[in-house]
Nucleic acid binder design. Sequence first.
DNA 1: TGTTAGCACTCAATCAATTGGAGTGCTAAC
DNA 2: GTTAGCACTCCAATTGATTGAGTGCTAACA
Lengths: 341, 341
Amino acid sequence: MDLDERKLKILQAIIRNYLETGEPVGSRTISKYTDLNLSSATIRNEMADLEELGYILQPHTSAGRIPSDKGYRLYVDTMMQDKERQVDEKMDMLLEKEDKIDNLLKQVAKVLATNTNYATMISAPQVHRNKIKFIQLSKVDDLHILAVIVIEGNMIRNSILNVPEAIDDETMLKLNMLLNTNLNGMAVEEINLGIISALKQQAGIHSDLIGNIIDAFGESIQPDNDLEIYTSGTNNFLKYPELADHEKASELLNTFEEKENLSELVQESLAGESETGIQVYIGNETPIQSMKDCSVVTATYDLGDGMKGTVGIIGPKRMDYDKVVGTLKTIMHQLDDLYKK
Amino acid sequence: MDLDERKLKILQAIIRNYLETGEPVGSRTISKYTDLNLSSATIRNEMADLEELGYILQPHTSAGRIPSDKGYRLYVDTMMQDKERQVDEKMDMLLEKEDKIDNLLKQVAKVLATNTNYATMISAPQVHRNKIKFIQLSKVDDLHILAVIVIEGNMIRNSILNVPEAIDDETMLKLNMLLNTNLNGMAVEEINLGIISALKQQAGIHSDLIGNIIDAFGESIQPDNDLEIYTSGTNNFLKYPELADHEKASELLNTFEEKENLSELVQESLAGESETGIQVYIGNETPIQSMKDCSVVTATYDLGDGMKGTVGIIGPKRMDYDKVVGTLKTIMHQLDDLYKK
DNA sequence: TGTTAGCACTCAATCAATTGGAGTGCTAAC
DNA sequence: GTTAGCACTCCAATTGATTGAGTGCTAACA
């Protein structure tokens, strides 16, 4: 048995209808809803076939049909309409240029959440492959020195280092020179043991300090330490009955609070990047356990200078995929417009 | 009519019972629950009095009684037992020393949430009255300079400034000297127009740049900009039926997401500080609209160097006040132990 | 052979009626 | 002042009947 034209049309109608109403869809509805001019009985036959093929399922006998994960997948892959243009008009400029990238990201998360009525997350750019632009050590007081690193894209990391004894200004200057001449222009992850030991050697009696500093760099830049994730619209979960019961909602809220879990999603999404940069995970396809009953749409943003990160929209499986994808694309374009130049 | 010894005992019993069970308390229960050896009928008479006085109320005729806000207030003010010692034993060391204060605060929020099963929030210390310890301007590239300020308590602020044209190293050095000699040791808020214009004058042709820098300080240090708030355990709201319905839970989640609202609570709590540092807001007493059906317990922490902030625990009105207050006190002591030295 | 009308059947959802029980207020007796 | 007892109230849970949307199947039709 195969999916002929008509079955596709019916499946599409079922899904469209279900996305709108959230209620199982019956044969009579489809019979009227489509322009196929078929009786409900015929539809019923076709629906029985579609069910056998696994595209739709019945919550219980004598109920209408709802799409299965397989059904959604087919829809997303082949039937979605590009709503981008329509969306575009409505929200032609929602983002404001922000100096601090964190604030921009928070803004994106919020705008997306209010526009889609789903929960959103956005990861701060991964620093992988990002070049060190500038390093500065300064003496704060006798026992503390401040290390500041500026990375390409003007992201700033800093940490306070404890030193066992005071360091005089001259040494300080030398260390600064040493670090800058050796490390500028390097990607953070390129700093390997060889380079470190070379640096230590050059530092002479201060090799311990160099060690400390490098360690501090490593720590402040390690992916999991660094992977800041902002979320918004978590209360939207409560709007969808299929997610709103205590058990599920609680788990979801927890996932959004313990952001470590979300980072899995970020990794996954960055790894499996598609041409458009947009990916859809339906139900069990998501890498995160607590989202089994959700669908997740992710996009990769790129602010230039290798500052890439992931945006995600998390909602019920019956989310408005067309709108979500459209909105994401729009926002991505706006980000491009704001930052690419 | 007055609150004699017996009425107090009965009221206390009602509240205790209700805190445990969450169900309206009947006269028979109290009759057995207390060591007063009174029949249910007598209790009923007393309860009628207590209701008339406004300490308890009936959800409907022929139901038991629940405490009113006034009742809770009396309980909190005069009947609470100090559970600190008991709590202390159970959680003798939950906090680990953290270098970065943000991480410590997040940790506190999380520990409190998991220990109490309520939602928690904690504000980063206000920088008011905090002295500037160290200022450093560095040239990142021709058009950008990096300004870093270290404040007493090793809190770091930084921002990237745009400059119209390149500045040579010598000028840079001078500017650094100028800023450090003039501003070190000052509280941020002490920097007034007089000082600024004096600085500008000394800077000569670079007075514009000084202006920029000062502005940037101001911005990065402004209370509302600075008032970072961390939250945890928001999913706990769903555990309490009286807060778990969509409407209320959604509002609460929203309040916790839009952290601006929470800052009201921080202000209020810092303002009305009590001797113990702990304050209890019951129902309508809270400054935040969406928490009308909640109680809020706040404490002020002090990490030394004027680094004060507010911790808050938000739960249903029938929260376990004794435990919450005890836990808060314990954590405050631990913070003291870790940081006061 | 595909389509349709018709019919019996299923099952969740809804509503009304019933019941049980927890709790009250009041009165009369101790 | 306290208590036993009783009538009363009202919620909550149970039951049963009803409804209606939807199905599968069969037989007739084009």
